[in-house]
Amino acid sequence: MTALPETTERKLGLVIDLDTCVGCHACVTACKGWNTQNYGAPLGDDDAYGAAPSGAFLNRIHSFEVQPDEGAAQTVHFPKSCLHCDDAPCVTVCPTGASYKRVEDGIVLVNETDCIGCGLCAWACPYGAREMDPIEGVMKKCTLCVDRIYNEALPEEDRVPACVRTCPAGARHFGDLADPDSDVSQLVAARGGMDLMPEQETKPVNKYLPPRPRDEIDVLAPFLERVDEGPKGFLGWLDRALERL
């Protein structure tokens, strides 16, 4: 059913720390790997070993430059995947009911055996979170690794999305954003987590933590005791001796 649930019992999602992400693309590779070998049709590639390879990915890293009015520009690596919106426009436009939002945990999924590959859901998503599989002709999107997070065959530490498990910088966090006491909710509260394109009124579940300001000098710094930066030992003697000449 493509009608959205009024509320969901939980809101599972990601919190992505733009301050910590180093733009290594490890999450992209982990996501592609897991989702090619597990739930649903493998994530397809067109001309994978040819001159113009192109494939479906559920997670991609963009890098942006932010130039403030004053001061140096800053590079921000920006991972982007499905935000599992509360008011997901991709779900309501689906004519077949293949797209749905789960009542129990809020995950937005595609039932691939019902998808006709019309592409309208990809048009309805402002974030570019949905990509048509070039081989299967069905719509692919982030499943929040629904086949990992509840999978009791996996060790407990692996029951998180593949992107979160693999991130070497610890820039990706997974949890229940409906629970104000969860680690992710507290992180969002402490760091001022934000929505992407709030004006599109999609009410995304995933939150982004803004980068911390760079090169901030403590106001008390000028009053601190000076650290002697002069050379010591033999070089110090030489320095003093030469100065006396």
Partner: peptide, 24 residues
Amino acid sequence: TATGLGGRGRVRLFEPPHTGGNYL
């Protein structure tokens, strides 16, 4: 607004996710 970084300055795509095109 797309990146949430608009309040900090001018935002410009520095590097796309990949060198080729994609479905999007």
